[in-house]
Design a binder for these strands. Structure first.
Lengths: 337, 337
DNA sequence: GTGAAAGCGCTAACAT
DNA sequence: ATGTTAGCGCTTTCAC
């Protein structure tokens, strides 16, 4: 890019001091300047093609108007809506979102958060939250503004916005109980994530409550592959007792679909399957997936709202916002045959 | 965030000049400083929790090490892989990507590109490219570095990375011809996008070449809804002559699925359907979708590579990189019955 | 090998 | 209502 036009350039042409140009161009301060002068300067700025340098302004004002958004992986379809939600709140308020992907890797996460800090972000929206985030705890001590979203971080008492995982699993179990299922398997998400732990705990508790024999199989990732291989292991047993599978999320459920199909079994005739998240396209799967709808866009909005509200107030209460979820019954669950 | 530790703070503690600290901490210049001093200063910096201020550095060096990525909509599943591709090339080279969503709106696009410029991005990767981008042309004149990806912009002669749209449509038509289809409908993407135009043109040309009667229906958006309503209009005609539909992309194709299903027809028995992009999850649809695989991740990588290569060289050749695509035959296409 | 000083583009305090 | 000055945190001449 060729040399950009600066405030000083505009000032020179207008024959005034750079400060006057600065005041004229800023809506907050333009009333400190003669109306006529403001008009003249604005005109000159436009003609010269002046573009303000947000970076220089940020250096001076100690505000970057930039928020870092830390997510595991953009290609997981639940995150784009969340990011759009964040954006939809931030943009009209002059902020921008800087999105990074950690791939569920703690080391990468540390590197990227550091890089966001170096870029002087005003705050962080974090959708990753593993078990041991000493780094987050450290940043919290240093006074960083952040909000956790989708997951919580035990170590760092930041405000958190989550879906109601327990209630979600609750309605799922209730649904399966009504369909007559007595032996249900939970393909749990990674134990490092709060969603993995919460859903797993809720599964065990709710199964017991409904007189269902509930067993849990663990996975290390929220991915199609992890779901498939976990289910493959189960189906290797000739005498598989399970009539229904509750997956930790939709990706795991889709992996379960693949496994069941490759074993020449039918969903839901032989085995019912339930996902979690109601991510895009679940209704177009074969069969359409019964799952729990989680309002990811709204979670993004709420997280952004919470973060900006922190900037003004001094208080740092560990607020928890839990958004309601709802069961979406489709074709992947049926009566026990 | 509480007051951060600055270079000057480190210098004070170390009893040296800030310049020495700067030189010591930068790999390029550390050899200008006494080895022992470097070691000492690095230690102090670490102990003090010093975090370099990239923004201040950028102001001084006139490089932000930030690239703006302009896409229509992150929730369209072809874009996350593309963004990850960009990231994968940029991150190891010290750059970061700043992603914005235009929602296919020219006005929004202008606003967002302006905001990226104000943030001093070193270059732009643009996946939007509508018809009349006077703004891009203007920026090009002003010496902006940018690369178009996935689509091209007629007005602005930036380098472009695209999939081979014509070849893709070619193999699709060939495939349908072999299956015996004589009457094929193209649900075209928006005419403002280069992909929409190119695929539509290729469809007409290739149909003729294979002796197929090819008709084109237009849409205004690459969306499920647009595909569904376009197909609904076609199926209202009792005497629908088409035995196959070539959709402008997978989202349109999915809309076509919905429409066909709601008219109690069967894919592919009554009508074959082909998508474009091979976006995630197309293989899990009912039926699995025959589509054209486009290497979106690689497109991102290539675009990033091209952009950074521009920074060094003075030449501004209008390079065009066309990536190969391939037909993925699945269950949504079959023989004419 | 290190220090001193200037300046990137902007805003905010203090003058006038 | 406008000008002057200083400085945000950093790098980069130019000295020594």
């Amino acid at each position: 890019m060729r040399d950009r036009v600066t405030l000083a350039d505009v000032a020179k042409v207008a024959g005034v001091n750079p400060a006057t140009v600065s005041r004229s161009l800023n809506e907050q301060t333009e009333n400190q300047v003669n109306k006529e002068t403001v008009r003249r300067i604005r005109k000159i700025a436009r003609e010269l093609g002046y573009t303000p340098n947000t970076v220089a302004r940020g250096l001076r004002t100690r505000k970057s108007l930039t928020i870092g958004v830390v997510i595991p992986d953009l290609t997981n379809p639940i995150f784009p809506p969340l990011v759009r939600g964040v954006d939809s709140y931030l943009l009209p308020r002059g902020y921008s979102a800087f999105v990074v992907n950690t791939d569920g890797n703690s080391e990468t996460e540390n590197t990227l958060i550091n890089s966001l800090m170096e870029r002087q972000v005003d705050g962080l929206i974090i959708a990753t939250g593993h078990g041991g985030d000493e780094m987050l705890a450290e940043f919290h001590k240093r006074g960083l503004c952040a909000v956790m979203v989708n997951r919580e971080s035990p170590g760092a008492p930041f405000p958190a916005v989550t879906g109601d995982d327990s209630a979600g699993i609750g309605v799922v179990i209730e649904h399966l109980a009504k369909l007559g299922h007595k032996n249900v398997l939970h393909i749990a998400g990674p134990a490092e994530s709060s969603t993995g732990r919460l859903r797993s705990q809720a599964f065990t508790a709710q199964s017991k409550k409904h007189g269902i024999s509930g067993k849990v199989a663990k996975t290390n990732f929220y991915s199609i592959e992890a779901g498939q291989s976990a289910m493959d292991k189960i189906l290797e047993n000739k005498a598989n007792p399970f009539t229904a599978v509750v997956a930790g999320n939709d990706l795991l459920a889709l992996g379960v679909y693949h496994s069941i199909r490759s074993h020449n079994l039918n969903i839901p005739k032989d085995i019912s399957v339930v996902g979690f998240n109601n991510m895009p396209f679940t209704q177009d799967f074969q069969p359409p997936m019964t799952t729990v709808d989680v309002p990811h866009f709204d979670m993004g909005v709420e997280a952004a709202r919470l973060l900006l509200s922190q900037f003004d107030s001094e208080e740092r209460a560990p607020i928890k916002v839990t958004l309601p979820v709802s069961l979406i019954v489709r074709g992947s669950t049926g009566l026990v045959s």
